[in-house]
Design a protein around this nucleic acid. Structure first.
Lengths: 202, 202
DNA sequence: GTATTACCATACGCCGGAGTATGGTTAGCC
DNA sequence: GGCTAACCATACTCCGGCGTATGGTAATAC
């Protein structure tokens, strides 16, 4: 529902319902993607939802493709900022790794979008984003493991492994096969994952 | 390209190119799903690929939905048979678990279909299949861990964990972020996964 | 106070897939 | 050898999304 602020806020007088900007379309697009997937991000449904017609859309964007591209870039930026913002200030690498898992519950919208993007891997505009994001994230994980004393190759393997667990979790969540995020079974599971994948020392 | 035999083989004289059966459509549907996903399984493209028109299709099936349903059931049966066929004859539970991972490389088509089904979780006809298959598979894993001496709850957690790794692997594969299945980096990774997730004793 | 610009509405043409209707062809039975 | 049922082709209609054309309105510029 947010995904970044675009520099200069408008005069604040005409607060909301005057005219829409490209950024508004991008944000709405991400909302729709989070809810129903990228292939459901069609411009007419979007326009309906925004109480407007598509005549407007083609003023801001050349095509549906262009919107998708911009929206994904926006999401990617947001995610990258988010990553360092929430992990950068944690000193102990082990705590950073743990926090990576615990963060799945928060930042709901971001994860929902990511989950839907995963489902749309293969799409020409989605794939590169997915690749960059995964590499960025695995890079952080790998670095943390190295900080804990692992050899680079081992750290990379461990990062890939742990990231796979995360991806698998998202998948099970999409299939409604994951215990509710606030149950104790979930807590127990998370504990188990942390215990077996994040060593206390190396 | 196979997915089960349908009882009585036709008289064997008129081997192939006489007329098509419902099973032929189902198999072709699964091929198409493996290649381009469930939402690409449209009946006209299917008909084109089979060198026929859709007039035929609606003789065998009531709707696209019906075809999808039947094709998925066929796949599910095939997968279930496959699971016990390749894991049932292995005595040591630890070997069964290891074989689960090593099997990802083989049975290519089956895994491709599964991967695409995962991408289409949320689809009303796909979801229940996905749920049953995941439960069936995790059940086997969990049982193997129990055989090794784990407490039931721990075994379930471990099974879920290991299955998540598998799902995450499929996802990374869809994003082309997995080392080629025959490289040594892949082998090293698999080794690593087995070492950290499959204890040699309990 | 008129011209321009930014934003939006209406109405259209196109395309591809879902279904339906209807008629044609071939195989096997009696 | 004619009938029937199984299988397939042709030719539609309907729908929803994309993109375009064109014209309208409100704010701002000058």
């Amino acid at each position: 529902m947010f995904y970044g602020n675009d520099g200069a806020m408008k005069p604040a007088q005409k607060s909301a319902r005057t005219t829409l900007s490209a950024a508004d379309w991008e944000r709405a697009a991400l909302d729709l993607i989070a809810e129903r997937g990228v292939q459901a991000m069609a411009i007419e449904p979007l326009a309906r939802r925004m109480g407007i017609t598509k005549g407007s859309f083609y003023w801001h964007f050349a095509s549906r493709e262009a919107l998708l591209e911009q929206a994904l870039l926006r999401w990617e930026k947001h995610d990258a900022r988010n990553l360092i913002a929430s992990l950068g200030k944690i000193d102990q690498p082990r705590d950073r790794l743990i926090s990576f898992f615990r963060r799945v519950g928060k930042e709901k919208l971001t994860h929902e979008v990511y989950s839907e993007l995963c489902a749309a891997a293969g799409h020409p505009h989605v794939e590169p984003v997915l690749e960059r994001v995964a590499n960025r994230r695995m890079g952080h994980l790998s670095a943390a493991f190295e900080e804990m004393g692992m050899k680079p190759e081992l750290a990379r393997h461990q990062a890939r492994l742990i990231y796979s667990v995360y991806l698998g979790f998202l998948q099970l969540q999409r299939q409604q096969q994951t215990p509710s995020l606030s149950s104790e079974e979930f807590e127990a599971y998370i504990e188990h994952v942390i215990d077996t994948l994040i060593p206390s020392a190396v």
